[in-house]
Computed example of a mutant assay.
Amino acid sequence: MPLTLKLTYNKDRVKKSGEARVYLRITIDRQTKPMKLDFYWPADKINEERAILLQRYSDDPDVQRRNLQIKNRINDITDIETQYSLRRRILTIELLFRDIGFYKRRITLVKWMEYKIMDRFNDGEIEEGTKKNGFSTIDSIKSFRKNAFIDDVNKTWLSKYSAFLRKKGSAPGTIWGRIKDIKAYLAYAEREVMLVVDTDYRNFQNSPPETDTVFLNQRELNILFDMVDSIELTQLQRRVLMAFLFQCTTSLRISDVYRANSEWNLDPKSLQFIPKKGSKRRSKKLVVPIMPGAKTFISNLDGMFFNLPTEQEYNRSLKEIAAKSQIHKNLSSHVGRHTYGYLFMKYIGNMKALQMIMGHQSPNTTQRYAHLEDEDLFNAVMKMQREINISTLKKA
């Protein structure tokens, strides 16, 4: 249905002076919403049929200016409708009122990101943590160039922003995350009809930094297996350890361990669920094969599998457990999943199978678990010796 608009005023809100707020009543697809204009006019001088204001008195100096203001606003609305039509996009009443704020204005990157982050959060597309990270990126942009417009941001701008963060002492991972955020929200801006984006920003290479993936080897994992029934652990620490070992033996992310429950079709062979990460994009359940021993770590089979504290307390408890176990590694909720990946590659060595189990979209993500320790390298060489049957070495 085409857009229609009408000059009008609220008949029930006429002042004692006879003046009323002037509106444009806009209708799109049977949805109607009034757009306020920032002035009042005598109600009996508002000609709704001709969509103009009449003179309040002879030689009224303001009538021409106000009528031009009305005409310009109508032209703006019509132009927005035309832009949507040209791009074959559907214009809604909500989009029109939003885009009036963008029209013929250069929007700063900060304002756009603030708007879009809250829009995604309110729609349930992102969670509180992602929202906080986004606003941390916004704070860093404010420190760099608060008033930078969206179309200012290109490859050169991102290069200077990256150098600014390095000079401030930001870690490589932090810089990568900040630029990743900016590029993501510029991509959202590109999809908008009324925003202008310099696509040169895409040419800025933003590769994730190389980081060491912390995992437990078999010896360290055996120590934790033995710790399960230790009297040294508090009840909270034991609950955390059981959940952590469940991670180590199933590959589940901590976000899914917190959600794991009896409705996940736990059968003798597998768990079936939609992972929390990327759930907006997924429609098919992930099937994770589960070894029988992993089930022994589940606290409750009739409801939620685990009764866990906050993730902050969970990580703090893991560090306390590591200290008691004399494991000199920085244990966190991520280490459990990393440990599963490392041990799978060590003992099974099938990267395609691991990719399917862990639910990775790209094999490059799975590659990070193909770690080998010195002992693994030696054992691999010894296995080769057995296979080629070297018994003696002939001296030259």
Rank of each mutant, 00 (worst) to 15 (best):
M1R: 10
P2T: 03
T4R: 06
N10E: 08
N10M: 05
R13T: 07
R13C: 07
K15Y: 04
K16A: 08
A20K: 13
A20R: 13
R25Q: 14
T27M: 01
I28M: 00
D29S: 08
Q31P: 00
Q31E: 09
K33G: 00
P34W: 13
M35D: 11
L37G: 03
K45L: 02
N47R: 09
L54F: 10
S58E: 12
S58G: 00
D60P: 11
R65K: 13
N67Q: 07
I70P: 09
K71I: 03
R73P: 00
I74K: 14
D76Q: 15
I77Y: 07
I77N: 05
T82D: 11
T82S: 13
R89W: 02
R98F: 11
D99P: 03
D99K: 09
K104T: 00
Y115L: 14
D123M: 13
E128C: 02
T130D: 03
K131T: 12
S136F: 13
T137D: 05
K142D: 08
S143L: 15
K146R: 15
V153C: 02
F164E: 09
A171H: 15
T174W: 05
A184L: 09
Y188G: 01
R191M: 13
E192A: 03
L195N: 01
D198M: 08
D198I: 08
T199F: 08
Q205C: 02
Q205S: 12
T213S: 10
R219Q: 06
L221F: 13
F225K: 06
F225V: 09
D229T: 11
I231C: 00
E232L: 14
L233R: 05
T234I: 05
R239M: 08
V240H: 06
V240L: 11
M242S: 12
F246N: 10
C248T: 03
C248S: 03
S251A: 15
S255H: 07
V257S: 04
N265W: 06
N265G: 05
N265K: 10
L266E: 04
K276P: 00
V288W: 07
P289K: 11
M291G: 07
G293E: 14
G293Q: 15
G293L: 13
A294N: 08
K295Q: 12
L301E: 06
P309E: 07
E311V: 14
Q312W: 01
A323Q: 14
K324P: 01
S325N: 02
Q326F: 12
S332Q: 03
G341C: 04
L343T: 10
F344S: 11
K346Q: 12
K346V: 09
N350I: 03
A353F: 00
M356I: 10
H360V: 09
P363W: 02
T366H: 00
Q367I: 02
E373K: 11
L377W: 09
V381I: 15
M382Q: 12
I388Y: 04
N389E: 14
